[in-house]
Computed example of a mutant assay.
Amino acid sequence: MLAIIGWLSLGLIKWVFFQADWRVVTENINLYTFGSYPQQEKWRISLWILFLSGLSLLTLLSPNIYKFRKPLPFLWIITVPLGIYLFSGGFGILTPIPTRYWGGLSLTLILTLCSASIALPLGIILALGRRSDYKLINSICRVYIDVMRAVPLIAVLFFGQLLIPLFLPIDFEVSRFVRAALAFGLFAGAYVAEDIRGGLQAIPLTQYEAAAVLGLTPGQTLQLIIIPQALKTALPALTNQAIGLLQNTSLMAILGLVELLGISRSILANPEFIGKYLEVYIWLAILYWFICTIMALLSRQIEHQLNPLKSFK
C-alpha cells in the first residue's frame, strides 16, 4: 500500500509541477473572486473579504488577544449586514449594484452567511416549537421539519427560483440572490432544528428546576440557561451543517447564479481554456477545502472557549 501511495504521489507531483497548465487559474483569479462585479467598485468586495479574513484570524487568536474577545460576537453579527450593504450599495453613498453582477468566491461567502443567518434562528424556533406542549404548534413544526428533510435540496432551489415569482404581483420582483438565500435558509433550518433539539434533550431536568428555584420566568430560563447550553452541545453538528451549506451553494450554478462552480463552467467554455477540466476542479477542491478547514477551526476555537476545562485534539 505504501508503494502504491508513493507511486501515485510521485505521479501527482509530476503532473502538478510539470504538466498542468495553471494559466486557467492565474489569469482568471479576479473572475474567481469578484465575478462580473464592476471593476471600479471591486474595492468594496475586497474590503468585506479583508474584514471577514481579519475577523476569522482574530477569532482564532482570541485566547492570546484578550482585548478583542468581548467585541468579537458583535463584529460577527454585523458581518452579514455590512456585506450586503457593500455588495449592493445605495443610500446615496455607494453606487447600487444589481445582484446579477455578483459572482465568484464573494457570492459563495455572502450567500452562505446570509443563509446561515436565516437557518439558525429558524432552527431554534422550530426546535422549541417541536417540544411545545401546544399540539397545533408542535404539529406545524413537526410537519415542516419532516417535509423539508424529505424533499431534495435541488427541488427547493427550483421552487425558490422558478415558482415563487409566479405567486408574486407582476410589478414586484425578488432578486435571484434573495430567493436563493431564502431557499437555502428554509431548507437548512429544518436540519438545524433537529440538531438543536438533540442539544435540548441533553439538558437535564435539574436545570429547569434550578431556574424555577431562582425565580426565573420560562422566557428567562430559555434565554439565559437552556438555549445557550443547547447551542453549546449542538455546536459540532451545527458546524457540519454550515460546511454542508457552503458546499451546497455550488448547486446555484444550475440555476444561473455564477458562484465558484458557475465561474469555472464559464471559464471552461472559453476556447483558450477548453479541456482544462482537471486544473479547474483541483483548484476548486483546494479552495473549498481551505474555506471548510477555516470554518472547522473556528468551530473548534469557539468550542474550546465554551469548554475551557475540556481538552480535545
Rank of each mutant, 00 (worst) to 15 (best):
A180Y: 14
T33Y: 01
S311T: 14
D21G: 03
P121L: 08
L111E: 11
A180E: 08
P236H: 08
P218H: 07
P169Q: 08
L60I: 07
L153V: 15
P121T: 09
S36A: 09
D133S: 04
A285D: 02
L235H: 04
G6M: 02
T249R: 07
A269S: 14
P204R: 02
I254E: 06
S56M: 10
L120R: 11
L105E: 00
Y277I: 08
P152E: 12
G256S: 07
V192P: 05
T99E: 10
C114K: 13
G256W: 03
T239N: 05
A181K: 05
A181C: 08
F17E: 03
A234W: 04
L86G: 04
R130E: 03
K70I: 15
D171E: 11
A155P: 15
S266I: 15
P38D: 03
L72M: 10
R131Q: 13
A269K: 12
V258H: 07
G256V: 10
S56N: 14
I93L: 07
I78E: 06
F51M: 07
E173R: 14
L235S: 03
N270C: 14
R300L: 09
T217A: 00
G6S: 01
W7S: 02
P218S: 05
Y101N: 05
R176C: 11
C292K: 02
L8N: 05
R265F: 11
L75H: 04
S56H: 15
I291S: 02
A116G: 13
L238F: 06
M148P: 07
A127L: 02
T239L: 07
A183Q: 05
K310S: 13
G215M: 00
Y32N: 00
S264T: 14
G103T: 03
R265Q: 13
R131D: 10
K14M: 06
N28D: 01
